[in-house]
Nucleic acid binder design. Structure first.
Lengths: 145, 145
DNA sequence: TTTGATTGTGGGAGAAAGTGGGAATAAGTG
DNA sequence: CACTTATTCCCACTTTCTCCCACAATCAAA
């Protein structure tokens, strides 16, 4: 499972070192896509393929389905981890997440996220607002078993 | 699978370089047709044949089906990839997608699309509308599991 | 503390990708 | 048939990318 957060460097070729603890889960490679909050998401092969099967089965004559396709596939990229434990982030994805020379790698359970330091700082503020969070999650019905 | 997006050049003979990562999927050639959004669609032979079987099975008395037929077949071309990895886009198709000297090649899963930079910019704006995207995903009830 | 392994980072050389153009061939036109 | 126009095939150049190696910093264990 992907846990924790790391501050890593993007070199001038667009390569990002994956935290060593994450690498075992990415042996078969990974899929990199645009996230929902100006960040990037890294998904395992099986998770992404399950998603893409569902989207691919939708009719091409449905304009919303075409939009969904573009959202998923045009912003997606198959990546492999190199010998030094890095992935190459294509330029258009770096741009969409405002990534420059530094990136924050954040565990998210089944997947992990890549943030620009600026956008992550915003998120961190929200996460640390204890008062607001106290009630925010009340709508979810979660028990600890 | 066709993923990602690329900015390529159309030379003055109407040739477009296919991203290297796409070429393996087009070994047997490809079908080039007009898309549904002022763009072009490039499909693998098998994807196009599956699509045309379905369209051919539609009633000839349905006027919308006839329209779809014309869109697909009258504006369709069989193309092959040359030794340098390019396809030749016929003039009438270049015109229908407002293609000039630059083109954006966009992955769409089973197929890929070719856009003029201007039209793609419009699409990109729509794709970056986070709220609308959240709605899209919820409409189709898509989760990462 | 010393030694050795692992992790994060940077850079160089060779290979591949993207682009342009010329010559040969084919196709259409008067 | 001659001529023009378009298409196909081939080669060449430049840029980009990918693979490999090197180094410093950190961590682990003896």
């Amino acid at each position: 499972m992907f846990l924790g957060q790391y501050q890593h460097t993007l070199d001038n070729k667009g390569r990002l070192t994956i935290p060593a603890r994450y690498r075992d889960l990415l042996d078969d490679g990974a899929y990199l896509t645009q996230g929902f909050d100006r960040n990037l998401m890294v998904m395992t092969v099986s998770a992404f393929e399950a998603l893409s099967r569902r989207v691919n089965s939708m009719s091409i004559t449905d304009s919303r389905a075409r939009l969904l396709r573009r959202l998923l596939f045009s912003n997606g990229e198959r990546v492999d981890v190199d010998k030094a434990g890095r992935i190459l982030i294509p330029q258009f994805l770096r741009q969409s997440a405002s990534l420059d020379s530094d990136a924050i790698v954040v565990g998210g359970g089944d997947y992990f996220e890549i943030w620009s330091p600026g956008h992550w700082a915003e998120q961190a503020v929200r996460l640390n607002d204890a008062e607001a969070n106290a009630d925010l999650f009340s709508i979810f019905d979660i028990s600890a078993e």
